[in-house]
Nucleic acid binder design. Structure first.
Length: 472
RNA sequence: GUUCCUAUAGUCUAGUGGCUAAGGACACUUGGCUUUCUACCAAGUUACUGGGGUUCGAAUCCCCAUAGGAACACCA
């Protein structure tokens, strides 16, 4: 049977890292096995589902390039089908109407809790006689769960799991208004769509035996299940709004490349020997559902940053450019009358962990900076630097052919004439020209800043030094 | 409370009974390279939760404890 997996989020919020990883694993398993990947929207909770959330989830998947082969399939469009299956089960006495009031259920639950028992339905309506059933009265439909025996399944990540049927109760499959509930719709959908592996969060483990029983009642062989553990925050605690339970789109905004995020996520809970860096193509061919780790793992932003830098360094400029352009636009950096961006990216890519940082360090070559970096200025724009900057300024003014060689020659001559080391010339010049204490080699830096701008900035630095002297 | 899941360094992980005085990566420390900051190279610190078994031999199998987590809705 050919592989078919699905990602089935409920549209109640954005796509967060946990969901993204589950989607990634499902997608990879399909791709690794020449299978299909379906996107299914579990929107049977009419109250909490929103079209905005559906859009947000699809935006997240598109940014990550987790393309689906089928869907999105909305469960709300399949109500007729669910109704049909409920009727089938009721007709076969595998499900039954239940007339218990919410009040009775609440009371029952409370009593059980007080007696330190697991709260569950007591089966009051399970064996009602035909005369006792009046379908005109408000009722839900419950699935008749087996009372005896155990449900055992081999989870592809957790191993064999067994739960006794007596721990399970007769769950509601149709609400009073006739709408179907989650544990039922997943089963019908996974059956109808021919899903072969269900990969989902391990918070669903406890639902699985119930679902298997429904598959059994339907006479359909259940798919394989793989329950992936949750992702913890940087601090090892459960992910929450405060730390990291953010939308994957936040990672775009923060300057991460989708491939880096995917690479980070695939290694978080999965491994292939000692390999750390995986291209998308490698992931697709090497991913093995059986190597998923059983234990929850903590998100580590440092490592993501490292990976992101690896990707920034190794991604060819033409592939990197669209992403970089997006961030340049965000920060309002205009490339049109500055140096060739590709030349700079080669030099700067190893100096930035995120695209945001990259834009920040690129900026001075395309527009004026507001102020000198305080720390760098304090250290290098001191009175002793004045003669250096004055001399280099005059030498620069005399350079007609603004090229690395001529720039370097001017710098070398300045150091020689003043009999100072390179450091005494290079650093003040660097800070003056770029506003910051770090940049590529001085000749390239100045080449890209441009002759006119370099001279203007040196003057600005001299003013800065004067101002500083007057304040001392 | 009941049931289920989990447990190798700060973090992600390798390890599926002997090849391991536990390997890789991030982070950290030190050194090299470097006019700066990176990157890069080299070296180093740090771990099998505890206790019982099984076995000639256990990080690896079993049990208990401990600690985390999940589920127990007319949510998904």
């Amino acid at each position: 049977m050919s592989v078919k997996t699905r990602f089935a989020p409920s549209p109640t919020g954005y796509l967060h890292v946990g969901g993204a990883r589950t989607a990634l694993y499902s997608w990879l398993h399909a791709r690794a096995n020449d299978g299909e990947f379906v996107l299914r929207i579990e929107d049977t909770d009419l109250e909490r589902s929103t079209p905005e959330a559906v859009q947000a989830i699809m935006d997240g998947m598109k940014w990550l390039a987790l393309e689906w082969d089928e869907g999105p399939i909305y469960q709300t469009h399949r109500f007729d089908r669910y109704k049909e299956v409920i009727q089938q089960l009721t007709g076969e006495q595998k499900a039954y109407p239940c007339f218990c009031s919410r009040e009775r259920l609440d009371e029952l639950r409370e009593n059980q809790m007080n007696n330190k028992e697991k709260p569950r339905y007591d089966g009051k309506c399970r064996d009602l006689t035909a005369e006792q059933i009046d379908l005109s009265k408000d009722h839900v439909v419950r699935f008749k769960n087996p009372k005896e025996g155990v449900v055992t399944f081999k989870d592809v990540v957790k191993g064999e799991i067994t739960i006794a049927n007596k721990e399970l109760d007769d769950l509601i499959i149709a609400r009073t208004d006739g709408s179907p509930t989650y544990n039922f719709t997943v089963v019908v959908d996974d059956m109808d769509m021919g899903i072969t592996q269900v990969i989902r969060g391990d918070d669903h483990i406890n639902n699985t035996p119930r679902q298997i029983n429904i598959f059994d009642a339907l006479g359909y062989a259940a798919p394989e299940f793989g329950h992936v553990p949750m992702i913890l925050g940087d601090d090892g605690k459960k992910l929450s709004k405060r730390h990291g339970a953010v939308s994957v789109m936040q990672y775009r905004d923060d300057g991460y490349l989708p491939e880096a995020v995917l690479n980070y996520l695939v290694r978080l809970g999965w491994s292939h020997g000692d390999q750390e860096v995986f291209s998308i193509a490698e992931m697709k061919s090497l991913f093995d559902i059986n190597n998923i780790n059983k234990a929850p793992s903590a998100f580590n932003t440092d490592k993501l940053k490292w990976l992101n830098q690896q990707y920034i360094k190794s991604t060819p400029i033409e592939k990197l450019m669209p992403h970089l352009q997006w961030h340049l636009d965000q920060q309002g950096v205009e490339l049109s009358d500055g140096p060739e961006i590709a030349d700079l990216v080669v030099e700067f890519s190893e100096r930035a962990q995120t695209l945001n940082e990259l834009v920040t360090v690129l900026k001075p070559y395309y527009q004026e900076f507001e102020a000198f970096d305080p720390k760098a200025a304090k250290k290098h724009l001191r009175p002793v630097a004045r003669p250096v900057l004055e001399l280099i300024k005059s030498k620069f003014a005399a350079v007609n052919d603004w090229q690395p060689e001529s720039i370097q020659a001017a710098v070398d001559q300045t150091a020689a004439e003043l009999d100072v080391g390179m450091g005494k010339v290079g650093m003040p010049l660097r800070v003056a020209a770029t506003g910051a204490g770090m940049s590529p080699a001085i000749d390239l830096t100045l080449l890209w800043v441009g002759k006119e701008r370099a001279i203007a900035r040196i003057e600005k630095a001299l003013d800065f030094i004067s101002l500083r002297e007057s304040q001392a």
